[in-house]
Amino acid sequence: MKSIIKWTLRQRRTSTLWWCFAVASFIFINMIFYPSFKDQAAQLQQSFSNIPDSVLQLIGGSTDFFSPVGYLNGQIFFIMLPLLLGILSISLGSKLIATEEQDKTIESILARPISRSKLLLGKALAGITILGLATVAALVSTTLLAKVVGLDVSTIAIFQATLACFLLCLSFGAVAFALTSSGLSQSSSLGLTTIFAFGGYIIGSLSGTIKWLNTPSKLFSFTYYDSEEILRGTYNWNNIFFFITVVLISCFVAWYFFRSRDLK
């Protein structure tokens, strides 16, 4: 299994480096302008105070965009980082098994004395490592840039928000991984997981205004992710069990179907 992890990481090392660079760059671009906003915070805050509630829900339910926590939440943790890491995670989840199955390279591996469970676990751990590396790039760049631009948010809060974002995105990737491992095509898995991930964001955001969306919104990971509360230290950490549950169920589904299904 170590070999599968090692060679999967080796094959993806260039793209992983580019992802880390892209994440750090986006964070840099978003944070470097904080000093300009900081000086005009009161004025800008005033102009945002009359936003309608429905629009407010879509952008996180808060009008605090220019305090250190508000800025960090709005620019990085509310949507930008979940979006970037989510794309990476869904792409990895839907590719790690499916691409090798599609181009038949998986047969080279499974013709050796390697169980399908070990192959699956090796690929999953490689995927988690890649997502983890991009997350570390995000954590390091956010922490450093916060110091550089004078954003007064504790490193622990940044770490906690990044960790929650990682778990959120891991749950997306796990769903994609379970779908392709179960035999669904790469494109179907991509589509369905995107609906689960970002459809969940829209449903979760609208549920504040449209009450009947409250119940269905509970089925989506995004509902349990509140970066502003994490940064302010008021987040209910029991919520992360939803992400962990999604990951565990997805792993079980992937293992259950992949261990005995026909390869394509």
Binding site: Q11, D103, K104, T105, E107, S108, L110, A111, R112, P113, I114, S115
Partner: peptide, 22 residues
């Protein structure tokens, strides 16, 4: 006993696919 079976097998597939970047 598929794992044990594969210890005894050498396999070459018809539509051979290799890792082209390696």
């Amino acid at each position: 006993d598929s794992i044990e079976v594969k210890r005894n097998i050498g396999y070459l597939s018809g539509d051979l696919s290799l890792y082209l970047k390696m």
